[in-house]
Design a protein around this nucleic acid. Structure first.
Lengths: 200, 200
DNA sequence: AAAATCAGGTGACAATTGTCATATTTTTAT
DNA sequence: ATAAAAATATGACAATTGTCACCTGATTTT
């Protein structure tokens, strides 16, 4: 019997997945969570065989949870289940050693199938992701990401200055660099591009 | 037997909802669609009793479909099912006369219950939405929305100019007005605020 | 018909933003 | 220990952005 844990912040999908997977004869859903922190705690406690994990969740993202599980050498296998084909997400997920990465665009049978494959030690990645230019690496350094994250919220150079304790010239230099890297004309466009790619 | 139609662009949720609602003894899912255009066509053809409709779908949004159904005096009752508590969405939905508005944050039982209520002619709205400040009306005029939509993509004043055939001064006047209405400090922040509220 | 409203525009100004070349300082590598 | 690299800072400049007061011509309202 495969013991499953599901972390997903959209209650309706969480409930639906839970019900349907529980109907599979060889699976049992032993726990659920609606945010990353709770998920991490419960996974440590319950020691499931496989965790299905959404990425965009409150408190801790699914990627952060996966990274933390890897750090603590948890035996639980992680399958990321997300709406978004953002390259940055995929890159981070693979780096943290997850066993699967699926889009919420397949059907439940496919998901159940993936779970069974993962249990045997295989890794399963959505073909949409392994192909084409989705392999783009995030060109931004951590500091650049941090600055763009703030700029994307509409903060001015001055506001960023006082959050990061850097001079306003430095901030503008960083932004200038970011714009070149992303081929954007201004902060707003840069923010849009980075958000689409999952780089922020 | 209640005849249901489901329009939802996330295949996994679509499939899951379909399976689970079909198990209800008094319901039958007679059709599904993954975009608004297909949904509209199929609803006209199949004449379901109730349509569950996501808002954010390709081609036509769920709101546009609901508005079109209202215009054509379709007897199908519409229940909007969305992740987002954006006030602008709710306002538009109510104006187009939908019979229900639920967040994807309840469980399936609640959804089934809502469907049964709607069938009897009742209207059901998620309590999260009918209360508090979520009643905020969109303060932006259509032209302002159009301009902000472009600005939110990172377009410069000059680019907006050439798309809308307005002078650059006029664009800047509009943006200035938008910033005041939204209490934002710059375009980026304005875009963020409007997007959150569902006003763009 | 006069008055008000509206969509669009001008011009002037200050502040912010983006670019670039060039320091200075701190870290890292050899 | 020294050289190379990175991170941070400056200053100068042009372009863009945001603010404001005011103008013009239609269209509505009264």
């Amino acid at each position: 019997m495969i013991r499953l844990f599901i972390a997903e912040d959209q209650r309706m999908l969480l409930g639906a997945l839970g019900s349907l997977l529980d109907m599979e004869p060889d699976m049992k859903v032993i726990g659920q969570a609606m945010n990353g922190e709770e998920a991490l705690r419960e996974i440590h406690r319950l020691q499931p065989d496989v965790c299905l994990m959404d990425i965009e969740m409150p408190v801790l993202s699914g990627l952060e949870v996966a990274e933390e599980l890897a750090r603590s050498a948890s035996p639980a296998k992680v399958i990321i289940l997300t709406t978004f084909a953002r390259p940055g997400y995929f890159e981070r997920a693979v780096k943290s050693g997850v066993h699967g990465y699926l889009l919420k665009d397949g059907d439940i049978a496919e998901l159940a199938d993936t779970i069974r494959q993962v249990i045997t030690g295989k890794r399963v990645f959505s073909p949409e992701l392994t192909f084409h230019a989705i392999r783009e690496e995030n060109p931004l350094t951590p500091k650049e990401q941090e600055i763009l994250r703030l700029a994307a919220l509409g903060k001015t150079t001055k506001q960023i200055t006082s959050e990061l304790y850097l001079s306003s010239g430095t901030i503008r230099n960083y932004i200038s660099e970011i714009l070149q890297k992303l081929g954007a004309n201004n902060r707003t466009e840069a923010a849009k591009i980075a958000a689409e790619k999952g780089w922020l």
